[in-house]
Computed example of a mutant assay.
Amino acid sequence: MLQLSALYRYPLKSCKPEVLDSARFDALGLAGDRRWMLVDAATGRFLTQRALPHMSQLSVLWNATGGVTLAAEGLGSLDVAVPCDQADTLRGVTVWRDSLQVPDAGDEAAAWVSAFIGKPARMVYMPEGRARWLPDGYGTVDDKVAFADGFPLLLIGQGSLDDLSARIGRPQEMLRFRPNLVISGAEPFAEDSWKRIRIGTMELRVLKGCSRCILTTIDPATGLRSQDREPLTTLRTYRQVEGEILFGQNVVGDGEGRLEVGMAVEVLE
Protein backbone atom coordinates (compact mmCIF):
# COMPACT_ATOMS: atom_id res chain seq x y z
CA MET A 1 0.00 0.00 0.00
CA LEU A 2 1.21 3.47 -0.84
CA GLN A 3 1.31 5.89 2.05
CA LEU A 4 2.58 9.32 3.00
CA SER A 5 5.63 8.48 5.12
CA ALA A 6 7.12 11.94 5.77
CA LEU A 7 6.22 15.64 5.63
CA TYR A 8 8.76 18.48 5.59
CA ARG A 9 8.41 22.26 5.67
CA TYR A 10 11.16 24.79 4.88
CA PRO A 11 9.98 28.13 6.33
CA LEU A 12 13.08 30.03 5.13
CA LYS A 13 14.28 29.11 1.65
CA SER A 14 17.47 26.97 1.66
CA CYS A 15 17.65 26.66 5.46
CA LYS A 16 16.86 23.83 7.89
CA PRO A 17 13.57 21.95 7.52
CA GLU A 18 10.84 21.26 10.03
CA VAL A 19 9.79 17.60 10.32
CA LEU A 20 6.00 17.47 10.58
CA ASP A 21 3.41 14.89 11.59
CA SER A 22 0.62 16.83 9.89
CA ALA A 23 0.32 19.99 7.84
CA ARG A 24 -2.26 22.35 6.43
CA PHE A 25 -2.19 23.18 2.73
CA ASP A 26 -3.29 26.53 1.33
CA ALA A 27 -3.29 28.32 -2.02
CA LEU A 28 0.54 28.37 -2.15
CA GLY A 29 1.13 24.78 -1.08
CA LEU A 30 2.17 23.67 2.38
CA ALA A 31 1.29 26.47 4.83
CA GLY A 32 4.45 28.31 5.90
CA ASP A 33 6.69 26.62 3.34
CA ARG A 34 9.32 28.92 1.79
CA ARG A 35 7.34 32.06 2.60
CA TRP A 36 10.61 33.67 3.79
CA MET A 37 13.86 34.21 1.90
CA LEU A 38 17.30 35.81 2.33
CA VAL A 39 18.61 38.16 -0.35
CA ASP A 40 21.81 40.04 -1.03
CA ALA A 41 21.34 43.49 0.51
CA ALA A 42 22.81 45.31 -2.48
CA THR A 43 21.25 43.43 -5.40
CA GLY A 44 18.13 41.74 -3.99
CA ARG A 45 19.31 38.47 -5.53
CA PHE A 46 18.17 35.38 -3.61
CA LEU A 47 20.69 33.50 -1.47
CA THR A 48 20.88 29.70 -1.21
CA GLN A 49 23.10 26.83 -0.12
CA ARG A 50 24.40 26.58 -3.67
CA ALA A 51 26.87 29.37 -2.87
CA LEU A 52 26.49 29.42 0.92
CA PRO A 53 26.43 25.83 2.23
CA HIS A 54 26.32 26.97 5.87
CA MET A 55 22.72 28.13 5.31
CA SER A 56 21.90 24.46 5.93
CA GLN A 57 22.75 25.08 9.60
CA LEU A 58 20.25 27.92 10.15
CA SER A 59 17.27 26.65 12.17
CA VAL A 60 13.90 28.21 11.38
CA LEU A 61 10.62 27.44 13.17
CA TRP A 62 7.35 28.69 11.70
CA ASN A 63 4.43 29.78 13.89
CA ALA A 64 0.71 29.93 13.21
CA THR A 65 0.76 33.72 12.71
CA GLY A 66 3.23 33.30 9.84
CA GLY A 67 6.26 34.55 11.77
CA VAL A 68 9.42 32.54 12.38
CA THR A 69 12.07 32.00 15.02
CA LEU A 70 15.66 31.96 13.75
CA ALA A 71 18.42 30.16 15.66
CA ALA A 72 22.08 29.44 14.95
CA GLU A 73 25.14 28.48 16.96
CA GLY A 74 26.81 31.57 18.40
CA LEU A 75 23.94 33.90 17.55
CA GLY A 76 21.17 32.73 19.84
CA SER A 77 17.63 33.13 18.53
CA LEU A 78 15.44 35.87 17.08
CA ASP A 79 11.68 36.06 16.60
CA VAL A 80 10.71 37.67 13.31
CA ALA A 81 7.11 38.81 12.78
CA VAL A 82 5.36 39.00 9.42
CA PRO A 83 6.07 42.51 8.07
CA CYS A 84 3.30 44.83 6.93
CA ASP A 85 2.62 44.70 3.22
CA GLN A 86 2.79 48.39 2.39
CA ALA A 87 4.76 50.66 0.09
CA ASP A 88 7.47 51.68 2.56
CA THR A 89 8.34 48.07 3.46
CA LEU A 90 8.68 46.72 -0.08
CA ARG A 91 12.02 45.56 -1.46
CA GLY A 92 12.83 44.50 -5.01
CA VAL A 93 14.08 40.91 -5.13
CA THR A 94 14.98 38.37 -7.79
CA VAL A 95 14.33 34.62 -7.77
CA TRP A 96 15.84 33.10 -10.90
CA ARG A 97 14.10 35.02 -13.72
CA ASP A 98 11.34 36.47 -11.55
CA SER A 99 11.67 40.05 -10.27
CA LEU A 100 9.12 41.14 -7.68
CA GLN A 101 8.39 43.49 -4.80
CA VAL A 102 7.86 41.91 -1.37
CA PRO A 103 7.88 43.15 2.25
CA ASP A 104 11.25 43.43 4.04
CA ALA A 105 11.42 42.06 7.60
CA GLY A 106 13.30 45.08 8.97
CA ASP A 107 16.73 46.08 10.22
CA GLU A 108 16.89 43.83 13.30
CA ALA A 109 16.31 40.72 11.21
CA ALA A 110 18.74 42.01 8.58
CA ALA A 111 21.51 42.51 11.15
CA TRP A 112 20.98 38.99 12.54
CA VAL A 113 20.98 37.22 9.16
CA SER A 114 23.93 39.33 7.93
CA ALA A 115 25.96 38.17 10.93
CA PHE A 116 25.07 34.59 10.10
CA ILE A 117 25.65 34.84 6.34
CA GLY A 118 28.86 36.83 6.68
CA LYS A 119 27.87 39.67 4.36
CA PRO A 120 25.04 42.24 4.16
CA ALA A 121 21.73 40.45 3.65
CA ARG A 122 18.05 41.16 4.06
CA MET A 123 15.15 38.91 5.01
CA VAL A 124 11.91 39.16 3.03
CA TYR A 125 8.42 37.66 3.22
CA MET A 126 5.95 36.45 0.58
CA PRO A 127 2.30 37.47 1.12
CA GLU A 128 -0.18 35.32 -0.76
CA GLY A 129 -1.25 38.28 -2.89
CA ARG A 130 2.27 38.77 -4.26
CA ALA A 131 3.00 35.13 -5.12
CA ARG A 132 4.63 34.12 -8.41
CA TRP A 133 3.06 32.11 -11.20
CA LEU A 134 4.46 28.69 -12.07
CA PRO A 135 6.91 28.42 -14.98
CA ASP A 136 5.35 28.81 -18.42
CA GLY A 137 3.68 25.69 -19.70
CA TYR A 138 2.95 24.17 -16.29
CA GLY A 139 -0.11 24.31 -14.09
CA THR A 140 -3.06 26.66 -14.57
CA VAL A 141 -3.64 30.40 -14.20
CA ASP A 142 -4.65 29.75 -10.58
CA ASP A 143 -1.45 27.91 -9.59
CA LYS A 144 1.05 30.07 -7.72
CA VAL A 145 4.25 29.58 -5.73
CA ALA A 146 6.03 31.47 -2.93
CA PHE A 147 9.87 31.47 -2.88
CA ALA A 148 10.42 27.84 -3.94
CA ASP A 149 12.53 27.58 -7.11
CA GLY A 150 9.57 26.98 -9.40
CA PHE A 151 6.84 24.77 -7.96
CA PRO A 152 4.90 24.65 -4.67
CA LEU A 153 5.63 21.05 -3.65
CA LEU A 154 8.27 18.38 -4.20
CA LEU A 155 7.42 14.68 -3.93
CA ILE A 156 9.93 11.81 -3.71
CA GLY A 157 9.34 8.08 -3.44
CA GLN A 158 11.21 6.34 -0.64
CA GLY A 159 11.89 3.49 -3.06
CA SER A 160 13.73 5.89 -5.36
CA LEU A 161 16.04 7.02 -2.57
CA ASP A 162 16.64 3.42 -1.49
CA ASP A 163 17.58 2.53 -5.06
CA LEU A 164 20.02 5.46 -5.24
CA SER A 165 21.60 4.57 -1.88
CA ALA A 166 22.15 0.98 -3.03
CA ARG A 167 23.84 2.15 -6.21
CA ILE A 168 26.14 4.52 -4.30
CA GLY A 169 26.90 1.93 -1.63
CA ARG A 170 25.99 4.05 1.39
CA PRO A 171 22.75 5.56 2.72
CA GLN A 172 21.77 8.95 1.34
CA GLU A 173 19.77 11.38 3.45
CA MET A 174 16.34 12.25 2.07
CA LEU A 175 16.88 15.84 3.17
CA ARG A 176 19.66 16.28 0.61
CA PHE A 177 16.77 16.53 -1.86
CA ARG A 178 14.50 18.77 0.27
CA PRO A 179 11.12 17.15 -0.47
CA ASN A 180 7.82 18.18 1.09
CA LEU A 181 6.14 14.80 0.61
CA VAL A 182 7.73 11.35 0.84
CA ILE A 183 5.71 8.37 -0.42
CA SER A 184 6.56 4.82 0.63
CA GLY A 185 5.38 1.50 -0.78
CA ALA A 186 6.10 2.18 -4.47
CA GLU A 187 8.72 0.79 -6.80
CA PRO A 188 11.77 3.00 -7.45
CA PHE A 189 10.80 5.99 -9.59
CA ALA A 190 7.17 4.94 -9.87
CA GLU A 191 6.36 8.62 -9.25
CA ASP A 192 7.80 9.44 -12.69
CA SER A 193 4.65 8.00 -14.30
CA TRP A 194 2.06 9.55 -11.96
CA LYS A 195 -0.10 12.41 -13.20
CA ARG A 196 -2.66 12.78 -10.39
CA ILE A 197 -2.74 11.36 -6.87
CA ARG A 198 -5.03 11.63 -3.86
CA ILE A 199 -3.88 11.79 -0.24
CA GLY A 200 -6.74 11.99 2.24
CA THR A 201 -9.22 14.40 0.67
CA MET A 202 -6.55 16.31 -1.25
CA GLU A 203 -5.80 15.79 -4.92
CA LEU A 204 -2.42 16.73 -6.32
CA ARG A 205 -1.16 17.08 -9.89
CA VAL A 206 2.31 15.79 -10.74
CA LEU A 207 3.75 18.32 -13.21
CA LYS A 208 7.38 17.52 -14.04
CA GLY A 209 10.57 15.90 -12.83
CA CYS A 210 12.81 17.96 -10.56
CA SER A 211 16.21 18.91 -12.00
CA ARG A 212 18.93 18.46 -9.38
CA CYS A 213 21.98 20.64 -8.72
CA ILE A 214 25.09 20.94 -6.54
CA LEU A 215 22.93 21.56 -3.45
CA THR A 216 22.29 17.80 -3.20
CA THR A 217 26.00 17.22 -2.48
CA ILE A 218 25.75 19.15 0.82
CA ASP A 219 25.36 17.03 3.97
CA PRO A 220 22.28 18.52 5.69
CA ALA A 221 23.67 17.61 9.12
CA THR A 222 27.05 19.32 8.73
CA GLY A 223 26.79 21.72 5.81
CA LEU A 224 29.86 20.11 4.19
CA ARG A 225 30.02 19.10 0.53
CA SER A 226 30.72 15.46 -0.34
CA GLN A 227 34.20 15.20 -1.83
CA ASP A 228 33.08 12.57 -4.36
CA ARG A 229 30.17 14.79 -5.51
CA GLU A 230 27.62 12.18 -4.55
CA PRO A 231 24.75 11.72 -5.12
CA LEU A 232 25.08 13.69 -8.38
CA THR A 233 27.90 11.48 -9.66
CA THR A 234 25.75 8.34 -9.54
CA LEU A 235 22.50 10.05 -10.55
CA ARG A 236 24.20 11.27 -13.72
CA THR A 237 24.77 7.65 -14.81
CA TYR A 238 21.08 6.73 -14.93
CA ARG A 239 18.86 9.74 -14.28
CA GLN A 240 20.10 12.24 -16.85
CA VAL A 241 17.55 13.35 -19.44
CA GLU A 242 18.38 16.01 -22.03
CA GLY A 243 21.15 17.38 -19.85
CA GLU A 244 19.09 17.50 -16.65
CA ILE A 245 19.57 15.14 -13.69
CA LEU A 246 16.06 14.28 -12.49
CA PHE A 247 15.10 13.08 -9.03
CA GLY A 248 11.67 13.63 -7.52
CA GLN A 249 8.56 15.24 -8.96
CA ASN A 250 7.24 18.80 -8.80
CA VAL A 251 3.64 18.82 -7.63
CA VAL A 252 0.78 21.27 -7.11
CA GLY A 253 -2.30 20.75 -4.96
CA ASP A 254 -5.90 21.30 -6.04
CA GLY A 255 -7.62 23.26 -3.30
CA GLU A 256 -6.81 23.39 0.37
CA GLY A 257 -6.77 20.69 3.03
CA ARG A 258 -4.73 18.87 5.63
CA LEU A 259 -2.40 15.89 5.36
CA GLU A 260 -1.05 13.57 8.03
CA VAL A 261 1.86 11.15 7.96
CA GLY A 262 0.50 7.63 7.50
CA MET A 263 -2.34 8.59 5.15
CA ALA A 264 -2.98 6.29 2.22
CA VAL A 265 -1.96 7.50 -1.24
CA GLU A 266 -4.07 6.67 -4.28
CA VAL A 267 -2.78 7.05 -7.83
CA LEU A 268 -5.67 8.44 -9.87
CA GLU A 269 -3.89 8.78 -13.19
Rank of each mutant, 00 (worst) to 15 (best):
A27L: 13
L75G: 13
L161G: 02
Y125L: 02
A221T: 13
V113T: 06
G255D: 10
W62N: 14
S114N: 08
L90W: 10
G157I: 06
L61N: 07
T233K: 13
M174T: 09
D107R: 15
K13M: 13
I218N: 15
Q49H: 01
R35S: 03
E230S: 12
W194H: 09
A109G: 12
A72G: 06
G185I: 01
R198N: 04
L175Q: 15
T140D: 15
F189R: 14
L2W: 12
Q227D: 15
G255F: 05
P188Y: 07
W96R: 10
L75Y: 08
M55E: 01
I117L: 11
H54F: 03
M37I: 02
V60Q: 05
V182N: 09
Y138Q: 12
L155F: 04
W62L: 15
K144H: 15
A87K: 15
D40K: 10
A41L: 12
R91Y: 00
W96V: 07
Q57P: 11
A71D: 11
A87H: 07
G67L: 06
R35L: 01
A51D: 09
V265N: 10
S193M: 07
G185F: 01
F177E: 12
L224N: 06
I183V: 11
P135H: 10
G129S: 08
N63W: 05
V60E: 02
G150Y: 09
G253E: 00
L58S: 00
A109K: 05
S56H: 10
L161Y: 04
R24W: 02
L7G: 00
I245N: 08
G243N: 06
G157V: 10
L7I: 12
G248H: 05
I199R: 01
A87P: 02
L28K: 00
L161A: 07
V261W: 08
R130G: 04
R225S: 12
G209E: 10
E108P: 01
T94L: 01
D149C: 15
D219V: 03
I197M: 13
T216V: 14
Q249I: 04
L90T: 07
A6M: 13
T89C: 14
V80C: 08
D163Q: 11
S114M: 03
T140Y: 04
G118Q: 12
L30F: 04
E244L: 08
T237Q: 09
L155I: 03
D98T: 06
E242M: 05
S5I: 11
G223S: 12
G262V: 13
F116P: 00
L4P: 03
P127C: 06
A71W: 05
F46D: 02
D107N: 14
I197H: 04
R205L: 14
G209I: 04
Y8N: 11
V206N: 00
V124W: 01
V145I: 12
E244C: 01
D21Y: 04
Q101Y: 00
Q57H: 11
P127E: 03
T43V: 06
Q86W: 03
V261Q: 14
L235P: 05
E242K: 09
G209R: 08
M126I: 07
R236G: 08
E73C: 06
P152L: 06
S56T: 11
S165A: 13
A105P: 03
E230A: 11
R24Q: 04
V267M: 08
L38T: 02
L30K: 00
F46W: 10
S77L: 03
D163P: 05
V241H: 06
L78I: 09
T222G: 15
G253N: 10
A121L: 03
I218L: 08
D219T: 07
